[in-house]
């Protein structure tokens, strides 16, 4: 009688963090034609490869919340994945005039918020992100 083959459940793991750190600069043009799912897929692919992303522009609030939701699903399903760290800073200036504000808001509707920077990193690499209105500081995990 032939022995039954044991079914082995394949556990997906994130690659071990090496000594080298990779920073991926992502111009807005790289995601501008993607929908929400496409953008999140692209970002999560880089995060799972243990890269820190510096994105030109920022995601919409809905995309940010979907990114968090997606990270939570992946924590449950991928070994050693602990989630993400994210921070965005905009080029907001309180002294801007009314017409400049209107011009910027129209540009934001038409082409998205490009005068911002979003930094996203895997929590296993980025220990902490500290943000204040004008700067973001990254505290990396010491290996």
């Amino acid at each position: 009688m032939a022995k039954k083959k044991k079914s082995v459940k394949k556990v997906r793991k994130v690659p071990k963090v090496g000594k080298d750190l990779t920073i991926h600069f992502m111009p807005y043009s790289e995601i501008v034609h993607e929908d929400t799912v496409g953008r999140i897929k692209k970002i999560m692919g880089l995060i799972l490869a243990q890269k820190i992303i510096i994105l030109q522009g920022r995601l919409s609030p809905d995309e940010e919340v979907r990114l968090i939701e997606n990270s939570m699903v992946l924590i449950d399903n991928i070994k050693n994945f602990q989630g993400i760290e994210i921070a965005a800073i905009s080029a907001e200036n309180e002294n801007r005039g009314l017409f400049e504000n209107i011009r910027r808001n129209i540009a934001k509707i038409l082409v998205g918020e490009q005068d911002a920077i979003t930094i996203i990193g895997p929590a296993s690499v980025v220990k902490e992100m500290t943000k204040n209105p004008k700067k973001v500081e990254l505290l990396l995990q010491r290996k």
Binding site: V65, A88, M129
Partner: peptide, 17 residues
């Protein structure tokens, strides 16, 4: 704590939208 956490900004952004 530091109030500029992205979580707070993301939640408020979603509620405003």
């Amino acid at each position: 704590m530091n109030p500029y956490s992205q979580v707070n900004i993301t939640i408020i952004g979603n509620l405003v939208a």
